[in-house]
Each structure stands twice: as structure tokens, then as C-alpha cells.
Design a protein around this nucleic acid. Structure first.
Lengths: 253, 253
DNA sequence: CCATCTTTGTGCACGCGTTCACAAAGACAT
DNA sequence: ATGTCTTTGTGAACGCGTGCACAAAGATGG
């Protein structure tokens, strides 16, 4: 077999828990908003509320970074913005390439949230020759043939894949071979990458399916007491002492 | 205070762990691919590889659903597709509205992954009067004034927010008031919702920031020993005892 | 019918993440 | 200087998720 690793091995990076790292951008966003309103200091309680987390969690998260913060007062907003930015590596410039300039790729290219945080769209790449040269978000699309050169010329280490699912693995392989070590994947596929390469995936369809699961559960719970009319397929997934929802058991095949 | 709950309280739904629910769509996708290739059965090992997870994890996940699967043989692909679909609530039709038809909203409207899984884009809504009536992905955009009527006429319970950050909370409130109980949020804001409403967020900027963190760590580790130029990136993620990179510590303000 | 082989389903242990609760630390007033 | 009050930083307990490892279950062949 020997398929490459697929998920990051969650190797506790530099002592900072992965879960904490995932929340740092959240804190940073809240802090930036405070900074723009010229708020000098903020307590863990206030900041936690703004970021939508528990205040104890926030304090513990910050404790991994060091002892910023003054007891009895709170945290200095500007200082914390700087510390978190530095920890996340946002004090430097990150050139990013987007591969696959369809609807989604174009939307990403236009997305303002990138530039605002040290990320710079260095190039747009697409396999369609008809796209070549056409400007999207003010950046001319380049052909996939030049992928390796583009990566190297711009010193790109972060790639965004917004291609159809079928092309994703091949694009991924080329990106990695050219030196990219972090990939944000929007294609609905599991990517195989060698050790040392990080992959994060965003799958719109999966998010919706998770919502649908909870939605169905809510509908089922509701219909548990009164006879829900519209309940086409909905069955009471409610409770726990379930008769296991043994369904008609129509073997589909 | 009394700010509404922000995160789902992770109320172990019907005994199925949240982490398992999040993986079910992954399995379903892999199974669907097998189904299209007319593969009759699959072992936990094979399926796990296709979904990019550990085989023990997969078996445990399935054990929450019931005892499908035959020892010595594996799982019947078609049967499992049906069971997971049913568990996720994909055997019914889910009308979805997308609010905010900018670049991203339009991309989402065009995204094929929705329709393929029982999700149907029932309506597109935007606050810009100039957009009203204009068709996107074959669906005419409707004005935000009619939001409540649209939700109710179509029996929508899932809403997608793709508006600018500033408008997101207001849109969210209106959606919830109109009866929406599940929200997929693309706006970079923390949404406050009452209990019973599920929110999942997708934040492109946050994903990139997490990647940047690991990227920075990788670069730092590499430079720790030799002044590695660009060393084709591939390095083991090994080692943990990090030198802690205590940096200059320049107080910014 | 029995032996063997494959693969599932799960008990168990471990580690990570979350939360509580509180002592230590500092600001601030007197 | 001293006491009070606020808020941080963290020890400790708990719960969830993961992965190992193996017994039970069934298929398959003789």
C-alpha cells in the first residue's frame, strides 16, 4: 500500500496545543476590532465574549503564549495583537497561489480577508488555456504549465486548491514537488501528501450534511410527542433508549 | 448580558459522538465513489484508506450506527450508503437559502456539491436592489425585504450567510426569527443565536492563518540547525524539544 | 462437520482539551 | 503602607476521542 499520510499527525507544535492555535485567529479578529475602536485594554471575560468562547479557555490559551496580561486590569489590546500576530507568523508576508479559477477560485481571489492578514495572492493558475491572461481580481491568470516556475519565482509555500475534485490530487502533487508545504483544499477529495506537508480542507457539502444531521434530529425530537405531519422521511431519531431505529430494513440492493 | 449561545453545546446527539457525525460525510463520499464503480463490498481497511482515516476509528464510528457489516467479508457498499444517508438525513429534501450574492455567494450558488446530496438552493437573497431579478446559477436573486416570506413559503430550515461581516448578525437574526434553525456562516464574524439553533462557520482567513502558523514553525525548525536555503521543504515533522524561539520581545506600543 | 482464515465489533488505556475553582498578583483607594 | 477589590494564571478533575489489541462471528474449504 504505502499511501502517503493524509492527515497531519497533530504533532503538538512548539508546545502550543492545536486547538489553541485554531482559536488564535479568532482572538486576533476580536482584538483587531477593539484596536480599531481604540480600546486600550480588555479583560478575559470581555474578549472571550467577543470571540465566542469560554473565558477560562481563553486565559489558558494565552498562558501557552506567555504571561501577557495584568492582574486586576486585563490585557493590553495592542500588545496582544502584536504577540498573537507574531505567534501566527503574520508579521511576515505569505505569498499564496490559487489553483483553479472557476467560480470559487475567482471568489477567493476577490476575497478581501486574505490581504488584510499578510497573505498576498501572488498568482492565479488555471488549466484552461482560454483563461490565460484574463485578469481576475486584477491579477492575470497564468496557465498551469508554468506552475512550477511560478511557485519557485515567488517563493510560494502556501497553495490553495479550488479545482474540480478530479484534478485536485495531481495539482497537489505538483505543488508539493515544486516546494509548497501547506495546502488549503477546497476540492471534495482526500489529498495524500508526504510527511511535513500540512493540508487543511474546506468542504461546503460536508458542512451542510452535518447541519442536516442535527436538523433532522431536531425535527425528530419535535415530532416525538405530537404527530408531525410533513414528516416525509423524518423518523424519531430522538431519545436514546432507541429501539435502534430498526427501520423497514429494505436491503437496497 | 444574556448573549445568546454562540457555539453548539455539543449535545451528544442520539448517542452518536459529534466527531463521528463529522466523519460520516467523508465515508459517504468514499462509498459513493465505490458505488459508482459497482464495487459490491469493502473492508474497513480499504474504506478507511479511501476516507483518509484510521480503520479502527472507522469501525468504531460505524458501530454507533449499528451492526452493519459482515465479519470476514466487510461492508455492503449500497447498504452502507443508504444507512449513512438516512442517518445524516439526506434521504429527504433540504431547501436552502443563500443570503448575500457577492462573489462567494454566487460561487456557492453554482457549486454542484449541493444538489448532489439532497440540498436544493431554494432561493438567493441579496440586499442590493440592483441584483433583484438578475439570475445567478439559473435562479433569480430576490430582495432581502422578502426574506421572511421566502423562508416560510419554501419551508427553509437551513440558511447560508455569505454577506459582508457587518451585515451577518442582522441577517442571522432575521433568518432565525423566520424559522431557520441551522446556519452555515461564511462571514468572518461570531454569530450569536438562541439555543436550539446550530451554527457552523467557514472562515477562509482563519484556515490560512493556521497554515501560516505551522509554516512558520517548519521554517523555524529548519533554520535552527543549518542555514537551510530552501531545502526542497520535505523534512520530518519529528522532534519536539523545540528551542522555544524566544525572539527579541520588542514591546510594540 | 470441523478447521482455518478473514474481518468486524469493542473493552480498555491513554492523551488531549475543557472547565472549575482558587491562590497569587497587581491596581487603587484611603 | 495597608487593605480591598479585580482579574489573571494554573493545578486538578473530568470527559471525550483515539488507537491498540483481541475475542467473537461468520465465510470458506476440505
Amino acid at each position: 500500500m504505502a499511501t502517503g499520510r493524509t492527515h497531519r499527525p497533530a504533532t503538538r507544535s512548539r508546545g502550543i496545543p492545536e486547538a489553541t492555535v485554531a482559536r488564535l485567529p479568532l482572538y486576533l479578529r476580536a482584538l483587531t476590532a477593539l484596536s480599531e475602536r481604540s480600546v486600550p485594554t480588555v479583560s478575559s471575560e470581555e474578549l472571550a465574549a467577543a470571540a465566542g468562547v469560554n473565558s477560562a479557555k481563553l486565559r489558558k490559551d494565552f498562558s501557552y503564549l506567555g504571561s501577557y496580561g495584568t492582574r486586576g486590569v486585563g490585557y493590553d489590546v495592542e500588545y496582544l495583537v502584536y504577540q498573537i500576530s507574531r505567534e501566527l507568523g503574520l508579521t511576515q508576508d505569505w505569498p499564496v497561489v490559487i489553483v483553479g479559477i472557476g467560480n470559487l477560485g475567482a471568489a477567493l481571489a476577490n476575497y478581501g480577508g486574505f490581504a488584510s492578514r499578510g497573505f498576498r495572492v501572488a498568482a492565479l493558475i488555471d488549466a484552461d488555456p482560454a483563461m490565460a491572461g484574463k485578469p481576475v481580481a486584477g491579477i492575470p491568470v497564468q496557465h498551469a504549465d508554468d506552475l512550477e516556475r511560478i511557485i519557485q519565482d515567488n517563493g510560494v509555500s502556501i497553495g490553495v486548491i479550488a479545482t474540480p475534485a478530479g484534478a485536485a490530487q495531481a495539482v497537489c502533487d505538483r505543488l508539493v514537488a515544486a516546494g509548497v508545504t501547506s495546502i488549503l483544499n477546497f476540492a471534495p477529495t482526500v489529498l495524500s501528501v508526504p510527511d511535513g506537508v500540512d493540508v487543511r480542507k474546506v468542504d461546503l457539502s460536508i458542512e451542510l450534511q452535518i447541519l442536516a444531521f442535527h436538523e433532522q434530529r431536531k425535527a425528530g425530537e419535535e415530532a416525538a410527542s405530537d404527530g408531525g405531519v410533513q414528516a416525509s422521511a423524518a423518523r424519531g431519531t430522538s431519545a436514546d433508549q432507541g429501539p435502534d431505529g430498526d427501520v423497514p430494513a429494505v436491503m437496497p440492493a
